[in-house]
């Protein structure tokens, strides 16, 4: 029992680390793309059909890749950036890139919830486009952004478990190598349980934060 628990500690930490770091990178890459997708759409702040459709196509193509294939495609890039294509660091590279188009779409749809009337009002006050994005659209969409990020973190936890199948480290890796290949049912159950708890925890926290914002804004 004690041995089993000891075996679980490192992969759990790895999964947490992969999730957090990938989320941060995916946000850094995906947030601006999502914002661009939103503001360049028809009738929005700076409509630009060409940029919008090119960006939209790229995002769609990347999103239609099954994650496991995308990881393999990204191996050379991982080798270039972190010097290896297996283990936690390599998985972070793949996860970040895989989640970027996903978060871009989530941010886009969250930001689009800001009413065009409100944007017009901000415009009429003489706001620059940057001020409208940073002082109006993003703060107004805060609850939707938080629930979007919650969804993204959960997806990344899922992806990171999948990454275990191709030597990615973390709980998924453990579950496959011990639980599946060596018939250690107990380890399989433990690993899966920890993942379930993580997902529940993230969802709970995300909901709590959204709730808090909504209450502060008098919307609930």
């Amino acid at each position: 029992m004690f041995n089993t628990l000891q075996m679980l500690i490192e992969p759990t930490l790895e999964t947490i680390c992969m999730t957090i770091v990938s989320t941060i990178f995916a946000l850094i890459l995906g947030f601006p793309v999502g914002t661009l997708l939103c503001v360049t759409s028809a009738g929005n702040l700076i409509p630009n059909a060409t940029l919008n459709s090119v960006l939209g196509r790229v995002v769609n193509v990347l999103r239609s890749f099954p994650f496991i294939i995308l990881m393999i495609v990204i191996f050379p890039l991982s080798r270039l950036i972190v010097g290896t294509s297996i283990g936690t660091a390599a998985t972070i590279v793949s996860l970040s890139f895989a989640a970027t188009p996903f978060i871009a779409r989530i941010i886009e749809s969250a930001l689009k919830e800001t009413s065009s009337e409100l944007i017009q009002a901000a415009k009429a006050m003489g706001s620059t486009n940057a001020q409208i994005v940073f002082k109006v659209i993003i703060p107004e969409s805060c609850p939707a952004i938080v629930s979007g990020i919650t969804l993204m973190i959960i997806t990344i936890i899922g992806y990171s478990a999948m990454a275990g199948a191709i030597g990615g480290g973390g709980l998924g890796d453990l579950a496959i190598r011990y639980g599946y290949q060596r018939f250690r049912m107990d380890i399989m159950i433990w690993a899966v349980s920890i993942i379930v708890i993580m997902v529940e925890l993230v969802q709970f926290l995300g909901d709590k934060i959204v709730d808090k914002i909504m209450i502060k804004r008098g919307m609930r």
């Binding site: 009337e117 009002a121 415009k123 003489g126």
Partner: peptide
């Protein structure tokens, strides 16, 4: 600059919830 010379109010108020 010119837009900052006038104020505007609307039917649906258009206040910022944030």
């Amino acid at each position: 600059v010119c837009r900052r010379q006038f104020g505007m109010i609307f039917q649906h108020f258009n206040l910022f919830s944030s």
